[in-house]
């Protein structure tokens, strides 16, 4: 990554000393936010982070060369929020690769990944730290990401904090029996692993230092599943906690979007080529090719074919990075193969 990183905090050293030496209130958490042309949403995200119940949070904002005045807004906020806010400005839009700049510079024991239009509930960071401390093999704590409109409407913070779902071994035991109906024996037989939502997730920093951050070659989307594969393969878990709540704003919905179906489709190919053992990889490739052809006709769009061609063109990158995960991980981690084909029109 040869982009200029402009850390605006002149007193960074002082800031880090202050934050690192204070161990009375628990370990430092680094909230890493990727920003691109959402000035007002980003301001709200930073304000929400700054007002968190958990005090030992540093906020790292990596801006992907926004052109809507985000930079000026950030510099202004940095003056007020020094030393907690640290800024990194990219020369161009690097997509999710820019997150890695934040991950690399994070000084906390745990990294909280957020979008520029998402923020955690007031008590979420403190609870997240507890989860990591309780379980040394927890790699990623996945948040319950809710719609912004549901902020203060859903029962997130009021939920019993002991209620969590192990993504590795989901059972029906954590929800009141009176509410959930399904033959328990039948449900308990379902064991599969999940990925996480990048609009709210905590990651153990030492693990990320070992296995790397987001795959820069993906640019957008499916990066969470890629990281999840590596987390599981390293012997750590990705677990969902319903009492860790984050709120996320909805994207514009009234126009055709080529971006999401394109990147989701292309990156799903790259994902399986990178991580699946050979036989599963070819089986999944044939399945995906079929889905591409089917949905090209169904939705009368060339976007999926373009994504397939682009994936083939980037095959060399996938091959270079190819490191098949253990077979049981490939079989258990749920990859939503049909999801890319549900967002075009």
């Amino acid at each position: 990554m040869n982009n200029r990183m402009d850390n605006t905090m002149d007193n960074d050293t002082i800031a880090n000393t202050t934050l690192d030496n204070d161990t009375t209130n628990g370990p430092l958490v680094s909230a890493v936010v990727l920003s691109y042309n959402r000035r007002n949403d980003l301001r709200e995200t930073i304000e929400m982070l700054a007002s968190q119940g958990y005090a030992r949070v540093e906020i790292l904002v990596v801006d992907n060369a926004s052109t809507d005045g985000t930079r000026e807004m950030l510099l202004d906020m940095a003056e007020k929020l020094s030393p907690r806010l640290r800024l990194f400005f990219m020369d161009g839009n690097l997509g999710v690769d820019a997150y890695n700049v934040g991950f690399f510079n994070a000084k906390g024991q745990y990294v909280l990944i957020l979008d520029d239009d998402s923020f955690p509930a007031f008590d979420a960071i403190e609870k997240m730290v507890e989860k990591f401390r309780e379980n040394p093999t927890l790699g990623i704590a996945a948040f319950d990401v809710r719609d912004y409109s549901a902020y203060a409407k859903v029962a997130g913070p009021a939920v019993d904090s002991s209620a969590n779902v192990s993504a590795a071994n989901i059972s029906a035991d954590n929800v009141p029996a009176s509410l959930v109906s399904a033959p328990r024996q039948e449900v308990n037989q379902l064991t599969y692993a999940m990925s996480f939502n990048g609009a709210g997730a905590g990651v153990r920093k030492s693990l990320m230092d070992k296995i790397g951050g987001y795959p820069g070659e993906f640019f957008l989307y499916v990066n969470e599943v890629d990281l999840s594969f590596r987390v599981w393969d390293a012997g750590f878990s990705v677990e969902f906690f319903r009492d860790l709540v984050a709120y996320h704003k909805s994207s514009p919905v009234n126009r055709l979007s080529f971006r999401a179906p394109f990147y989701y489709t292309r990156n799903t190919f790259l994902l399986i080529w990178k991580h699946y053992p050979a036989d599963l990889m070819w089986r999944a490739t044939v399945k995906l090719v079929y889905l591409v052809l089917y949905h090209t006709m169904e939705q009368h769009t060339p976007v999926y074919l373009k994504a397939l061609m682009c994936a083939v063109a980037k095959m060399g990158v996938a091959l270079k990075k190819r490191k098949p995960v253990k077979r049981d991980i490939a079989l258990n981690l749920r990859v939503p193969f049909t999801y890319p084909f549900t967002m075009y029109r």
């Binding site: 319950d144 859903v154 029962a155 779902v165 009141p176 959930v180």
Partner: peptide, 18 residues
């Protein structure tokens, strides 16, 4: 099954079927 916990948080949902 992975969504049952989240579905159960809606105050106006009286039943979650897995």
């Amino acid at each position: 099954v992975h969504g049952k916990e989240m579905a159960a948080t809606y105050t106006n949902v009286s039943r979650v079927i897995v």
